[in-house]
């Protein structure tokens, strides 16, 4: 499967086990996100450290994944690689999501 998830005390961590989120997998990604985030903690951390490349369809799928979380829940992103980071900054989506350099940073942030 493309995604795996684990539960910490206060967050659901969803890890993308694919090196790209592109047009060919955007719909599958969105559906898998729905399955992994249906219910559970209000905070979801998406670990993107294995993802080398994302296109606008993949970006749209991440936005859709945040919307489908519903009210009062949030999607934080961790471990953006350089090209993925570039897409988020170019589109100003870095102002919409909270971005953490690594999964550890994201998990630690929830404690503080």
């Amino acid at each position: 499967m493309t995604l795996t998830s684990t539960l910490t005390g206060t967050a659901k961590i969803v890890t993308v086990n694919s090196n790209r989120i592109d047009a060919a997998m955007a719909i599958q990604f969105k559906e898998a996100m729905r399955e992994h985030t249906d219910g559970g903690p209000s905070r979801v951390i998406l670990d993107l450290s294995s993802v080398d490349f994302i296109d606008s369809s993949g970006l749209g799928a991440i936005v859709a994944a945040m919307k489908q979380l519903g009210d009062g829940r949030k999607l934080d992103l961790a471990g953006l690689t350089p090209t993925v980071d570039k897409v988020f900054r170019l589109t100003r989506m870095d102002t919409v999501f909270k971005l953490f350099p690594s999964l550890d940073d994201a998990v630690t942030a929830q404690v503080g």
Binding site: S56, S57, L59, G60, A61, V63, A64, M66, K67, V87, L90, T91, V96
Partner: peptide, 12 residues
């Protein structure tokens, strides 16, 4: 809920 899910391509 109003965030765009597309329309990023040509700008990039």
């Amino acid at each position: 809920d109003d965030l765009p899910e597309g329309g990023f391509g040509w700008f990039m």
